[in-house]
Nucleic acid binder design. Structure first.
Lengths: 260, 260
DNA sequence: CGACAGGTTTCGCGGGACGGAACAATAATC
DNA sequence: GATTATTGTTCCGTCCCGCGAAACCTGTCG
């Protein structure tokens, strides 16, 4: 009971989490009284927490035998977290390798609400570098990351992404849907996406998708650098390096993640 | 806001869980203000929940960049739950098969605090049947389930189990440590454990271990029946059926559970 | 039928959760 | 480097609501 009683510690939350923990550790459904005795809490109090935890689906209440077990919300969150963690950990060594090879910013992103979200990033120690940060969002159509993911999405989901008009990030941003469609076809053929100054002036990006076992693009990885530092040779080398790295990540993901 | 406002719903808990959920779903570390805005809650309130969730290790606080992510306690619980769930689901069909074949009680149990805990159970529809229920505990040394697990435990852990004197459940209970040692050697040789009237008078039990990929006995499965219904023939058949079933479960467990 | 265990409801009290506002620390901008 | 903006932390008074003892209900067993 050291740090669990500070000024900013909310007691109901602490106790409810104790209940949650106790239930999860038992491995079988448990009764109200058992929990109350094990945690030295009044029956009434535990009852309220169980109601609350069940209402939020963190616990599940078997009404018939009045027992409580772990609920679907908890399992959902655990799964989501597990997958993100696996993705980031598998991508990490590949990203290190890439930044070491090219000395340019390497990004990892996923699609959320029709936009891409950066979930990891490695910056070189150079003065000039990309300005995006982990957690920032950009439109899918103006980034190589977004184009890479879109190219491997089922047709109906692509449609959905173009429901609202395409935002114009810079003068070069592709805002015409039929042009975008052609670009996506290119990505499908080549296996990587390129964007030059469409998202931020003077910056370009090469992006590749990371696929799960079912071939669905769960994420994308990119190399981001100033236009002036690009050359045709570098483009080929970088695109291939990215494709190889993403392929390795995809393959390992399929092994790690539960199919269920 | 339907069932989240009933009489027995504790508001602080509901809101803290919303914070937890939001953080888990982002896939990257997030800031206080971002959470507060996303959930339409006052900064101060979110601050308190974050402190509380961090203090309990459900969240992790990166002090350097003031960002919050999923914590180790949450991941621990998720892992424990996942393993129990996998065990129960893989064992289920085998247990069904066994009860169909023998029409006697089938038990699934794990070791906790030097005692075995029943985590699943299938009863036949016969009048005479075992009285234990899911969640009940018995001493390890007086049950076939416990002996089966002990026989596959590393030596130092077996020692630990015999630290306190062996409780005498019935007149037949093995309370002599050297006798117990001989029984365990038998189990190691045969691959299954037998107990007759040691835990409850008139009842006997045949138990087999379920091993994980490392060969550690994570659980045990047993067939439990009245002594009078047993015969030498039945013993052989049942022991083999149990060993086969447990082997299949063990093998599938190794595939399902993350090695990490 | 009476006793008992386990879950649910009631109710009055008082602590502590609440959140606005002030403050501090850090980052961004010029 | 000065200034502004942004974000995290602390303070404090209000009042709500979380608390828990006790009463109540329900099903089970001897």
């Amino acid at each position: 009971m050291d740090k669990l009683s500070g000024d900013y510690i909310v007691q109901p939350v602490v106790k409810a989490l104790q209940v949650l923990e106790y239930v999860a550790r038992q491995g079988h459904m448990v009764s109200l009284t058992e929990i109350a005795q094990a945690l030295n809490l009044p029956k009434t109090t535990v009852f309220r927490y169980l109601q609350t935890l069940s209402a939020t689906n963190f616990l599940e209440h078997d009404i018939y035998r009045d027992r409580y077990g772990v609920g679907c919300k908890f399992r959902d969150l655990a799964k989501v977290d597990h997958e993100f963690k696996a993705l980031r950990e598998l991508a990490q060594p590949e990203m290190r390798q890439l930044i070491e090879t090219f000395n340019e910013t390497v990004n990892l992103a996923v699609l959320a609400d029709s936009r891409i979200v950066y979930i990891d990033m490695l910056d070189p120690l150079r003065p000039l570098r990309a300005t995006a940060r982990v957690g920032h969002r950009h439109p899918a159509h103006s980034t190589a990351l977004g184009k890479a993911i879109m190219a491997y999405l089922p047709e109906d989901q692509i449609q959905h992404l173009r429901a609202e008009p395409l935002a114009e990030m810079t003068i070069k941003t592709t805002i015409d849907t039929s042009t975008l469609r052609l670009q996506i076809a290119d990505v499908q053929r080549r296996g990587y996406a390129v964007e030059v100054g469409e998202n931020e002036d003077g910056l370009m990006c090469i992006g590749v998708p990371i696929l799960n076992a079912a071939g669905y693009p769960v994420a994308a990885m990119s190399l981001s650098l100033p236009e002036r530092r690009m050359s045709p040779d570098l483009m080929i080398v970088a695109a291939n390096a990215l494709k190889d790295a993403a392929g390795r990540i995809s393959r390992q993901l399929s092994l790690t993640i539960d199919k269920a």
